[in-house]
Write a protein that binds this DNA or RNA. Sequence first.
DNA 1: TGTACATCAGTGAACGCGCGTTCACTGATGTAC
DNA 2: TGTACATCAGTGAACGCGCGTTCACTGATGTAC
Lengths: 225, 225
Amino acid sequence: MPPTPRQRAREAAVDDIKRIARRQLAEGGAGALSLREIAKEMGLVSSAVYRYVPSRDALLTALISDAYDRLGATAEAADAELERDDLAGRWTALAGALRDWARAHPTDYTLVYGPPLPGYEAPPETYAPAQRWFEILIDVLRAGSDEPDPEDPVLCAQLAAVRDRRSPGAPLGGIAAGLAAWAQLHGLVALEIHGQTDFVLGSGAELFGHCVERQVRELGLRAGR
Amino acid sequence: MPPTPRQRAREAAVDDIKRIARRQLAEGGAGALSLREIAKEMGLVSSAVYRYVPSRDALLTALISDAYDRLGATAEAADAELERDDLAGRWTALAGALRDWARAHPTDYTLVYGPPLPGYEAPPETYAPAQRWFEILIDVLRAGSDEPDPEDPVLCAQLAAVRDRRSPGAPLGGIAAGLAAWAQLHGLVALEIHGQTDFVLGSGAELFGHCVERQVRELGLRAGR
DNA sequence: TGTACATCAGTGAACGCGCGTTCACTGATGTAC
DNA sequence: TGTACATCAGTGAACGCGCGTTCACTGATGTAC
């Protein structure tokens, strides 16, 4: 059954609310999210938003959950365009998708990977979508690399736990190198969207590309065919 | 001339204000910094804080500037304990100082490297202290590494500019590797204090140590003597 | 096709709250002669 | 050493503001018979 006009209007209103809310977050941080201001911008009286959103906190939760979802979807779309065995291409695409998405939506990136919002506890239902980008990364890593296993026994135990949960059979050295690369990608992206690479280099694109190339080489990821 | 009792009392009051302010930031983010609340905690009437601090924004500026200063001082202290030619040791110490300081003062770390505070523009006088940690890093890197120069001519031009400003004569491959390592350290620290590595590994210490060891090897940093 | 009723969107007033900042003031602490 | 004056810390009241949320309401849109 198709949605009734009322349902469509309702969904459109909720989308409007979220759109304005995201803009508020982008412009003024979490403290700037204001239901009253949203109502005003929509030409509604302040209490009317409560027809669409139960509370300010619930709206924030929805926005965070959406952000996870969008990053995951972007990553999956980028990954799906490539041959399964083109590991180098897939890694490069995933890294690029992360950077592009973060630059296009810095606020959402900060919601997902940045400092946790004070007084806000992520509800359990956001855990699974939170990990989609990471899942694909681990999937690509499954090919392994020829890095030697780390010596630290504590680290090896931690890595073994990650491996057993996500990627049985992969060598520990590869997992370690993958996590190291993951942290590097995050560092590059975070520094760039916070303006630190601009300050040092003028543009973050080239250093990012360079690092991704090195990662592909170091992780032993091969192009398919 | 020694400070008069009044001056000492004044400085103590300012320190109290900053201490409480830092706690507020840690507990509730930038939005939670409240002059009224500070006054209340000090047993003062709300207008009395204006004897010590001209405005909320000025207090915030002072806190950020303090944070840069403290990180710089911590790094310098860690670096000073080692022989000048013990490059491997100095790099490891700098990395460890960054991580320890960030873990001990996550709010200050976020002020320095995190998302810029909305509506807040860093005043020019904070630029210089902002770079102290980075300066030492570049200083250690001066020894260079045997990484080949990057191929991307745009990146090479950017790296050359950094080199000419900070470290004349260093090979471009070494600068690139140094910046890549810098981003990785930042990524590891940021992910850890935001709870992401805990989620994946349980503890970030071991992966951090592993990565720093690899960096020292890759950057070709030698122990002195 | 028409009518009775339920659902829902939106209104307008009000609640209590905490905020940054100003201002005229009191009284204590310092300084100059 | 004592006195006159300036500096400074702290008070208390007030300003105007925006916020989240509740509640009883009106009127339009849908649904069941």
